[in-house]
């Protein structure tokens, strides 16, 4: 499992760079490094479907982020947060860690999953009632309503993006015609 630790440390280092660097484009590239390392980590954790999805999503996300930052504000990512804000954030982080101790103690040890709900799916699959790939069976068969909800959310997000990117609303277009 040493490769998992290396990947996690790499992700933490890249995340710190992404948070602290001033140049926005460099920050976006660093967050891309985090996402691609996450894709490799999924592969190490025996989740090939997730690795493929994460790779595609990360590249699309990177393209959108670079498109948003490339010509804008090359110098303006001033770190300069007020000292009080930084102190408050650090206090919050410490509080979070203190509260997280209990749940962490209750977690099953790493490498031994609970496997309670999935047992039903795996048994049905072992009887030959599902596709060989269990993840796609769960998404498209056992939990198809989840996938329907996901498609709805994605569709709503696309509608929101289109509505925001529209140059003029109906009202604005009418006003413009009047001025012409």
């Amino acid at each position: 499992m040493i490769e998992l630790y290396i990947l996690l440390l790499f992700m933490i280092a890249a995340a710190v760079i992404a948070v602290e660097i001033r140049d926005l484009l460099s920050a976006v590239v660093a967050v891309g490094a985090v996402g691609l390392a996450l894709s490799v980590a999924f592969l190490v954790l025996k989740a090939p479907d997730l690795a493929i999805t994460q790779l595609v999503v990360e590249i699309i996300c990177l393209i959108i982020l670079i498109r948003a930052t490339v010509t804008r504000d090359r110098v303006a990512a001033r770190g300069g947060a007020a000292l009080a804000v930084g102190a408050a954030a650090c206090a919050f982080v410490v509080l979070f860690l203190a509260l997280a101790r209990g749940p962490f103690a209750a977690l099953p040890p790493f490498g031994a999953p609970l496997f309670r709900t999935a047992e039903l799916y795996v048994e049905a699959g072992a009887r030959g009632e599902s596709e060989p790939n269990l993840v796609s069976t769960i998404i498209l068969n056992w939990r198809a309503y989840d996938t329907l909800g996901e498609a709805t959310v994605l569709f709503t997000a696309v509608i929101g993006v289109l509505a925001l990117l529209r140059r003029h609303g109906r009202k604005g277009a009418a006003a413009e015609e009047e001025t012409e």
Binding site: L50, T53, V57, I60, I64, A68, I138, D146, E150, V161
Partner: peptide, 30 residues
């Protein structure tokens, strides 16, 4: 086998994350 259930649900979460990130970036650009 590793647990397939978190994998299936995280697959959904990744795609929804892309949608929400795209919406946020559009808002920031506007």
């Amino acid at each position: 086998m590793v647990d397939p259930l978190p994998q299936a649900l995280v697959l959904t979460a990744i795609v929804i994350g892309l949608g929400s990130t795209a919406l946020l970036i559009t808002l920031a650009v506007r």
